[in-house]
Every structure is written in structure tokens, then in C-alpha cells.
Design a binder for these strands. Sequence first.
DNA 1: GTGAGATGTAACAACATCGTAACCTGATTG
DNA 2: CAATCAGGTTACGATGTTGTTACATCTCAC
Lengths: 228, 228
Amino acid sequence: MAAKILIVEDEPAIADLVLLHCKHAGYQAQVVHAVLDARDVVDETLPDLVVLDWMLPDKPGVDFARELRADERTRDLPILMLTARAAEDDKVRGFETGVDDYVTKPFSPKELMARIKALLRRAAPETSDAPLEVSGLKLDPISHRVSGGEQALKLGPTEFRLLRFLMTRPERVMTRQALLDGVWGDHVFIEERTVDVHVRRLRQALEPSGHDRMIETVRGGGYRLKKA
Amino acid sequence: MAAKILIVEDEPAIADLVLLHCKHAGYQAQVVHAVLDARDVVDETLPDLVVLDWMLPDKPGVDFARELRADERTRDLPILMLTARAAEDDKVRGFETGVDDYVTKPFSPKELMARIKALLRRAAPETSDAPLEVSGLKLDPISHRVSGGEQALKLGPTEFRLLRFLMTRPERVMTRQALLDGVWGDHVFIEERTVDVHVRRLRQALEPSGHDRMIETVRGGGYRLKKA
DNA sequence: GTGAGATGTAACAACATCGTAACCTGATTG
DNA sequence: CAATCAGGTTACGATGTTGTTACATCTCAC
């Protein structure tokens, strides 16, 4: 399951360079040349990381970054900014929009790939224990409380971890194996069908507030936490 | 009251990156480039957290970490190690000296900040002697008096420290290990089940005023002091 | 429609967690 | 020294949780 990378870059030489390296590293990469196209691709495929040029024909890259941050669906999508400018001022502006990392041209492909890898490795914002909310369903990792609307919900430990995992990755289809790795641990030996049972239990636990319908089954794919 | 962060890093690019992010996150941050300078700053300002590079011009960062651990004043000062080496071996060496966390370059600024935040939160100071009150339950750290409503309550020493610890962290699920670290001391070797017994005793002591129900059990998680 | 594969559901036995009481030790007190 | 007390550990039973399995139901290609 290779990570999907979207490259937004109008200079062909650079775009090709990055694309090539990404593919070589085993990622599923795709180039677009303008923000307009980028929006479409993000909507359709929801990539795992965006490599974003600062200067683009139709719109500055920072603006697009801001757009991504504004949308719940892409709030945590890692963004790596690519730019010729090295001025301190720009760095500040970049970080203020929530760009995750910053590479100035000319760059070494090796360094770029290392940073991409690092971002992907930690893409899962599981580390943060900020309260989560998806469409009225609230989960607080600190107090371990879950509520749907005004209704307090009672979850078992595994259901809690499962829901937390899903809420940090809304709209994303998670395979049963991915759920086992993420919720149970990387190397456990558990039947995939067990996931189904826990999804069922989680749905049951969410029923009182009606949020059980947020968990969609993707036939042949896995499960997905629907946003609205 | 922003937390003070000291950054010990000789590579300007990285130092700036970290500094920028710290400031952006609202911390009071300062960069020094060598252990020699770091010592001075620590003595003068006693920061709340140190971001420490592994390799420094005058001395390895680990050595400085060891120094900090040896001094009573800085024994509990959180240290986050920054290193280019990814070898497992180094990680072990880092943790052995009492480094609290470890980030390998290249790193995602987002991840770094998340870890800094986590470390700062973990070190949340017990220090204040101000009287505590949570939902009608009152505790005075100075006179060691506890009362629920009009009812005066009688607690043993350990129960008192346990209650105080919980009252400074209401609504937060505390694992048994966290309670052992916080109430008994950081590295004691005591059975986790012992916590249960003391929670039981504390509940019994709170029973006269009915506040015993404030202490909730979180199955598979630990205990939590309910607020309302 | 039919059949095969995928998913939902319920039941179950193994296991883990937790509350509680009892026990033991060492320190303190009178 | 005896009595008391606080604190840590252990044992046991009640209850909750979990992974698996078997069977029901659904979906889709043919």
C-alpha cells in the first residue's frame, strides 16, 4: 500500500526530478502544474502528502496550503513547501499557514526524499492528544470521554482506540490490516474478521446518538469514517 | 506565562527552524550554539525544556544531558534530544542518560512541536500551594486539611498526596504508572495493584461527604477525578 | 435468478481487570 | 514492650472484555 504523493510544480525540470525520485522510492506519485488541477486531485484521491511549489502560474502555493488547512478533510495532510526564496520572512509566512516542512531550491534530492519520508512516517497525528470532533461526534483522548451531541457514550477500551484511530483519519478507507496495525499493534497475529466484530461493537456503542451511521463499510476495501 | 525553551544547536538552519516554530507556538525560546553557553543560560534562567543536539562543537550533547541529570536543580528538566544518527544503539545510549525524548533528523516540525508540547505537559508543576477545589471538594496543601461541603474529612498521608495529585489534574485519565510516578515518586518499584488499594482507601475516606463517587475507574485506562 | 464471496450478527469460552478483604511488615507511640 | 497505625502485597470472586467461530444476510458478477 504505497503512499500517494501529489506534486504541485510548474517547472518541468523540477517536477520530473521530484516525480522520478518519488517513484523510485516506491511511492505512488503524480504531478500537476497548477493549483486548479491540484484541487481536483486532492478531492478525488486524497493524497498522503503534497509537495507544493511556492510560485505557481495561477496562484501562490501558500494560498493553496491555507485552503487545505481550512478544510477539515485535509487539515492534517502533510505539506512540504518547495521554494526558491530563502528569505526569513517567507519562512515565517510559510509556517504560519501550517506548512509542515520547507525545502529551498536548489535542494539535494536525497534531502528532499529524507524529509518526505520523515513526514510520511509521522503523518499520523495520533501523537497529539487534542480533542477530536467529526460531525458532532466528540472524543477527548485526555479524559477518555466520548460524546455524540449531548449524549455521553460508553465505549470499551478497544472500541475507544478504534474510534480514535478512525477519527484521526476521516474519509479514508482503512483496510482491515491497516486497522489491526494501527489499533491493535503492528505485529499482532489476529484474524481480520475480528475487526468486523469490533466495528460492529463500536457501531452499537455509538447508536444512542445516531453516530453509528458514520462508520461506512467499503465492500472489498475496509471501513471508513464518513464526515457528514 | 509562556514556557521557556532552550535550544542547543550549532547548525543555523536547524536552530532557526526550531526557534521559529517554538516562537510561533507561543513559547519563549532562545538558541545557543555550544554546551558552554548552554550551561550559562540554564544557570541564569532555568528553562522549562531543553532541545539538545547530539553533536555540538565543544562537547557531545549526551554529556551535557548527563550533567543536567546530575544536578539536583535540573534533575527533572525535560530534555529532547535532536540527532542525525538513526542507529538504535544511539537511542539506547540517549535514554540511558535520562533523555526524555528523541527525534532524529530530518524531522517534521509538526512532530517536533507535538513532542515538545507533550513533554511540557508531562512536567506540569505540582508547585502551587494554593487551595484546591473541585466540585465542592476542598483541599488545602498547607494545612493538609480536606473537606467535602461542610464535612471535614480525615485522610492518611498517601491518600492525601493521591487526592492532591488527582485534584491538580481533574478530568484526566491517569494510568496506574502515572500515579505511581506522580504520587509515590518517579522510579519506585511498587506493584501497580497497590494503586487500586489506595484508591479504595481514598474513596472510603471521602465517603462521608459523598465525594467518593468523583473518583471514576476507567477500565483498561486507570483512574479519573470527575469534575461535575 | 443464482452462486460465490463479503459482511453482519450472535453466542461462547478464555482471559483480563477491578474491588475488596485479609495479611504482613516496619515505624511510631505510649 | 505492647498497641496502634500506615503502607505494600496477595488472594479471590465478580464482572467486563476479547478473539474466534458459526450462521445469517447481503451484494454483485454472471
